[in-house]
């Protein structure tokens, strides 16, 4: 394997890891505030659809992103209403959101565009173009550093850089601000936050809204950055992989970057090679596809580094009377 191949695989690792990273951070905010979210998949799917539809109609990709965020926020509002206001089961609400998005996207897509649930292909300004970073062209010929900078770091679409910037931003917000402290506290011990006179419901809704914005970005990236338009079920389980990455990352932002890039790498490998021959032992492509889930089960089992979820996760908060 030469440098070019390695760079190509790492390049698609970043591309494929980006939606996972955004969705994983989305889940991180929600779950750190004590709201389990298995509806990441549905939110991403809804966002992917509406962003592609809006980008096609307006011809402006940023309006598409805004529409995608709007769609994901609507789904978040349902989740918040069910799990915070009416103290329903958060997992069941998540399942409902996944089905709602899966059905509505095809229903509306067929009604609007009559292409069997697809949106028309996006071209020109309706999708994200790669950004060439400053000096990439000039450095291109420098050995080793040049190709790495040109291929790997430069030349991605805007949302990739947004996603990477979200990691330090999330870490700062969670660990360095008053809001972050309260958000984490709401997920561990909501009664204490309530005693301090801070609204548990308010913080939790804020967390769910942040989750909506980030899944909106993730979905918009899928439809307008990674591909050119929406196709039926295009999230293809990425919401669940993001959920797996969240556990793998033990609910921490920087670890989330590592976990999602690892899972992105696995996807890049299985896209490129059908079966991997390791001197006699052939690893089938299906094993690579299942690996993120297997790794997550191993981590969950606590044999390798125990993952402990936020203590108040999944429980609706009931004020003491």
């Amino acid at each position: 394997m030469d440098l070019t191949t390695v760079l190509q695989i790492l390049d698609s690792t970043i591309r494929l890891g980006t939606p996972l990273l955004l969705a994983c951070l989305a889940g991180l905010f929600s779950e750190r505030a004590g709201i389990f979210d298995i509806g990441l998949e549905g939110k991403m799917l809804a966002a992917a659809f509406l962003s592609a539809a809006a980008a096609f109609v307006t011809g402006d990709v940023w309006l598409g992103v805004a529409a995608g965020i709007f769609a994901a926020l609507l789904m978040s509002a349902i989740h918040g209403l069910a799990s915070i206001t009416f103290r329903g089961n958060q997992l069941i609400s998540g399942v409902a959101i996944n089905f709602l998005a899966s059905g509505l996207t095809v229903l509306l897509g067929q009604y609007w565009f009559a292409l069997g649930g697809r949106t028309p292909s996006l071209t020109g300004d309706a999708r994200f173009a790669p950004i060439t970073l400053w000096g990439a062209e000039a450095l291109r010929e420098v050995p080793v550093i040049g190709p790495i900078y040109y291929e790997l770091i430069s030349g991605h679409t805007a949302l990739v850089y947004v996603a990477v910037a979200m990691v330090p931003l999330s870490a700062w917000l969670l660990y360095r601000t008053r809001f972050g402290l309260r958000l984490r506290a709401v997920g561990e011990n909501p009664a204490a936050v309530d005693t301090a006179g801070v609204s548990v419901v308010g913080i939790r809704f804020a967390a769910v809204a942040i989750c909506g914005v980030l899944t909106g970005l993730a979905g918009a990236y899928l439809a307008t950055g990674l591909s050119a338009g929406f196709v039926k079920e295009m999230t293809a389980g990425r919401g669940y992989i993001a959920l797996a990455a969240l556990i793998f990352a033990k609910w921490r932002p920087w670890y989330a970057l590592g976990a999602t890039m690892l899972f992105g790498f696995l996807e890049a490998i299985s896209n490129r090679y059908q079966n991997i021959d390791l001197g006699g032992i052939v690893i089938p492509v299906q094993f690579m596809q299942a690996l993120p889930y297997i790794l997550t089960v191993v981590i969950l089992a606590g044999f390798v580094g125990k993952a402990t979820p936020p203590r108040a996760g999944g429980e609706p908060y009931v004020k003491e009377r």
Binding site: I78, L81, A82, S83, F86, R87, G88, N89, Q90, I92, S93, V95, A96, I97, N98, F99, L100, S102, G103
Partner: peptide, 13 residues
């Protein structure tokens, strides 16, 4: 999805 939502998650509503 709506049946799951209303009979499950929004039961209290």
């Amino acid at each position: 999805a709506l049946v799951i939502l209303f009979t499950g998650a929004l039961d209290n509503m």
